[in-house]
Design a protein around this nucleic acid. Structure first.
Lengths: 201, 201
DNA sequence: CCATTTGTTGATCATTCGACCAATAAATAG
DNA sequence: CTATTTATTGGTCGAATGATCAACAAATGG
């Protein structure tokens, strides 16, 4: 029972990667269907047939983005032996990603659509939900550190500490967008981690 | 020798403030000339006659923005008695501004156009230059602290420290955009300032 | 009053936007 | 084979985009 009907002339996975490149380059609103169709090598009608709409395509693109570029920082957070080392490695993995020579120098989750036209409100909220997820993962990792005994519950609270490191991650994205080098981001990370011994002595 | 010709029926200063409101609400690309004309109470032809173009209007809007919303953090940085107090007050003034109940909860310099269509490259670079100015002001204030004797030159370097606090400012803007309260931003600031005693003991 | 200067109005420019047809092409099922 | 299903093509939809233009309105200078 092979597929009925005329087979696709393009590979949706490849097309999705090509769409990712364009959205990454120009953000959500800065990318037109023409841009996408050209980069994907198909007509806009095929985009609609395969991916639904511009917004639906973007959501699928963000899924791919999270599974690829987004994975190293997440893994670092997961696999660091202590909360402190996990956060430190997560920041460094983030810096690696957003200064990678083959990609635009910023995190799409953070800067692909922070503001924009009223009609794209849903896209902004979709990305905001992803950022909320980032924060939650950081907080969970800190909690695990307390459970594991490698982190003393900080006086300022785990919420505050998690939000602080989420803030640093987000700030790094602007820094990279503005041309900061990997080495410069490393010095920022050094400063950010310097807070640790004061917060959780 | 009063002004020749038909006088304007609108006050450019008022119109600029109204344009600021719209750009602030929707970012640069998310704002159309129709949006602007409606909010300013004039036709688009009058916008072109008085302000030049959409981009030129936006640059003038950012001038007004910097002189108003941007001033409190700058003043805090300038007037703080020590480098540490100045940075702390600057962060708090920033948090005040980006959670102000009457304005959108983010800093325009940071989020009005971080990404976008190719043709708006100049606008993005204009804002990036403004952010570079932020960083330079922070670094200058730290240098003054060393000169004044209230700050020991930190091992990590003044550049690193300045970039770190610029990163925090920029991260705070995303936090506010995502709905963080003033109190939550305060906890982030507490964490960010906790790095100080480690960096400059 | 008349010429000049400037601003506003309403219309419109070509282009692009996201979206979606109808017509055609290419596969499988029976 | 024919009928059915699915994909692609080329075209086009109405609306919106940033930007202007000619026509009209309101001021000053002489």
């Amino acid at each position: 029972m092979a597929t009925r009907g005329r087979p696709r002339t393009f590979d949706p996975d490849v097309a999705l990667r090509q769409a990712l490149d364009v959205f990454w380059e120009r953000g959500y609103e800065g990318t037109s269907l023409n841009d996408l169709a050209q980069a994907m090598g198909i007509k806009s009608a095929s985009i609609y047939a395969c991916f639904g709409s511009k917004e639906s395509l973007f959501r699928q693109v963000m899924g791919l983005y999270g599974a690829t570029a987004g994975e190293p920082p997440r893994r670092a957070l997961r696999e660091g032996p202590t909360a402190r080392e996990a956060i430190h490695a997560m920041l460094q993995a983030t810096a690696d990603q957003i200064t990678h020579p083959e990609h635009p120098h910023y995190c799409m989750l953070i800067l692909a659509a922070p503001t924009g036209a009223t009609e794209n409100h849903a896209v902004r909220e979709f990305l905001a939900a992803g950022r909320q997820g980032q924060y939650a993962e950081i907080k969970d990792r800190l909690s695990r550190g307390v459970t594991d005994g490698d982190l003393l519950a900080p006086p300022v609270g785990l919420d505050a500490m998690a939000r602080y490191y989420a803030t640093v991650v987000q700030g790094l994205s602007i820094q990279a967008r503005d041309g900061a080098t990997r080495a410069e981001l490393e010095t920022v990370i050094t400063c950010a981690m310097a807070a640790w011994q004061t917060l959780a002595p």
